[in-house]
């Protein structure tokens, strides 16, 4: 896919790097945002800030309230309490049109008119956004998602993946400040998925804020500057690295050819090692505060003990580990 630069007018350069504390110019924010449906609370006391040009992942299980949150930001539903800022505009009854003018939402289901052609679908939305030179903008949006060759096809004749691309083109039409993408790669093949990832990267480079809800954790890890793990309430927010550090202690993984006859003798005397455990013969987990500093001392001690070392490395936790630990905690609480 091509860069969406051609779609947008010139924008200021992205100011964001990794906004973990004190965000520069939040373009999307929620403060105590709550939504109840009858006696069911779908979103409870949500607080978050997303900066201009940031790709923000919003992760959570089915029914966690992710879509409800996006719908509140998109002014489709009104919060029960709390406040929010969307594309720099306070969320409120009088600001709905102005907010919707500045954002675009791509729902999980593409929501295309299947009897109309790709171009006719986009012409409708160009009209609803009041865009000038709509045919040129439509052409560029289709080019950005590699759909120029299918412009006159009816949407009903397209595969699910291609419909998803048309929906993405629709989300780019109005040069939005904030794009809400709900599972943008659902149903796409690996090549198309990579193209969507490239497009999201490109949006970030052009200071477009992307609010991405996804179940694909490797996608979130690959694309997002920060992620929030959400299950009715906000469980954790930060960069994937921050979340790993917060939830998991840092550790070295050591593998030897044969089991050490007396591992305590090897590891207990090392000041850098706080504790150790062994889950199977020849495999050891060493809790350390600074893996890069501890690894050489561990290696020396192993060699001195006559061990055949196969590997020493920092134990890696994926975003999936973080996610599962938090969500499993929720499931455990629900069971009780």
């Amino acid at each position: 896919m091509t860069s969406p630069r051609s779609l947008a007018g010139p924008r200021s350069a992205p100011a964001l790097t990794a906004p973990s504390g004190g965000l520069p110019e939040p373009v999307l924010a929620a403060e105590h945002l709550t939504k109840c449906f009858g006696d069911r609370t779908a979103v409870d006391d949500l607080n978050l800030e997303v900066a201009r040009g940031e790709v923000f992942g919003f992760l959570g299980p089915n029914g966690a309230g992710k879509s409800t949150t996006v719908r509140m930001f998109g002014t489709l539903i009104a919060p029960t309490s709390g406040s929010a800022l969307v594309a720099g505009v306070p969320l409120g009854p009088g600001n709905g049109v102005e907010i919707r003018r500045r954002i675009s939402v791509m729902p999980e289901s593409p929501g295309l008119y299947l009897r109309l052609s790709v171009t006719e679908n986009l012409e409708l939305f160009a009209g609803l956004y009041g865009l000038r030179h709509s045919s040129q903008r439509i052409g560029r949006a289709l080019e950005a998602v590699n759909m120029s060759g299918r412009a006159s096809d009816t949407c009903g004749s397209l595969s699910k993946g291609l419909r998803q691309r048309v929906a993405l083109a629709r989300a780019l039409l109005n040069d939005p400040q904030v794009v809400f993408l709900d599972e943008p790669t659902a149903g796409l093949d690996p090549v198309a998925t990579r193209e969507v990832h490239e497009l999201v990267d490109s949006l970030r480079q052009h200071a477009v804020t992307v609010f991405l809800t996804t179940h694909r954790l490797e996608e979130a890890e690959r694309l997002c500057d920060r992620v929030a793990i959400f299950n009715t309430t906000l469980r954790l927010t930060g960069t994937p690295d921050e979340l790993r550090r917060r939830l998991f202690t840092r550790a070295l993984e050591v593998r030897t050819l044969a089991a050490l006859p007396d591992p305590g003798k090897v590891f207990d005397g090392l000041p850098a090692v706080e504790a150790w455990s062994s889950d199977q013969p020849g495999s050891y987990i060493l809790r350390v505060s600074e893996p890069s500093a501890a690894a050489p001392a561990v290696a020396r001690s192993l060699v001195a003990a006559g061990a055949d070392v196969l590997a020493i490395g920092e134990r890696q936790h994926s975003l999936e580990d973080v996610y599962l630990r938090l969500i499993d905690d929720d499931v455990e609480v629900e069971r009780r």
Binding site: V97, R100, I103, V105, P107, G111, L112, L114, F125, L128
Partner: peptide, 14 residues
């Protein structure tokens, strides 16, 4: 029913 209402309602359309 055809899932097109939500995308339309997220535009500036009143």
């Amino acid at each position: 029913e055809q899932g097109t209402l939500e995308p339309v309602l997220t535009t500036p359309l009143r």
